[in-house]
Simulated assay, not measured.
Amino acid sequence: MESVSQTLPLLRELAQGIAAQFGERCEVVVHDWSQPYESTIVHIEHGHVTGRKVGDPGTNLGLEVMRGTSEGGHRQNYVTRTKDGRLLRSTSIYLKNDAGTAIGALCINFDISELLAAEKALQGLVGMQELPPVQESFVSNVGDLLDSLIQEAEDAVGRPPALMSREERIRFIALLDRKGAFLIKKAGEKVCAYLGISKYTLYSDLEEAKGTDAEGEQS
Rank of each mutant, 00 (worst) to 15 (best):
Q151N: 12
L122A: 15
P57G: 03
T101H: 03
R171A: 01
I170C: 06
G85I: 11
N97G: 09
R12I: 08
L145T: 07
K210T: 08
E215C: 07
S113N: 07
L95C: 03
A174V: 06
V42Y: 05
E189C: 01
L122Q: 15
G196F: 07
N97F: 03
Q129G: 12
K186G: 09
A187L: 07
A156M: 05
A187E: 03
V28T: 10
G180M: 13
D144V: 14
D32N: 05
L87P: 06
I108R: 01
R89K: 14
Y94M: 07
K185I: 06
N60M: 15
T82W: 00
L175T: 07
L195D: 08
A15H: 04
R178T: 05
Y200T: 15
D177E: 02
T201L: 05
T50G: 13
S39Q: 14
L163W: 05
C26M: 02
I41T: 05
E152Q: 12
I103D: 08
V49A: 07
M128V: 13
L195S: 09
A102F: 00
E168R: 08
D84T: 14
R178N: 06
R159N: 14
N97L: 06
K120V: 14
M1D: 11
Q151F: 13
D205E: 00
Y37D: 10
G188I: 06
R67Q: 15
L131I: 13
L61S: 14
Q129W: 00
Q129S: 13
Y194F: 02
E24D: 01
H43I: 03
Y78Q: 06
R52E: 08
I93N: 11
E38R: 13
T40W: 06
D147E: 11
E13A: 09
I108E: 04
L202G: 03
K83P: 12
S92P: 00
L8N: 01
A162D: 06
E2M: 13
D84Q: 14
S165E: 02
M164S: 08
L131V: 14
R169G: 12
V42T: 02
G72C: 11
G23A: 07
N60D: 15
P160M: 05
G55N: 02
V126G: 08
E208Q: 04
E27T: 04
E13V: 11
V42M: 08
M66R: 12
L146M: 10
N141F: 11
I112M: 11
D155F: 05
R12E: 04
I93D: 13
V29A: 04
I170F: 09
L176Q: 02
N141C: 10
I18V: 12
I184N: 08
D147Y: 06
Q123H: 10
G211H: 12
R86M: 04
L115C: 15
F172N: 06
R67C: 14
A209R: 02
R25E: 03
S165K: 00
G51N: 01
G47A: 11
E64M: 09
L146Q: 06
K199D: 12
T69I: 07
V28N: 08
T80V: 11
V4H: 05
S90W: 00
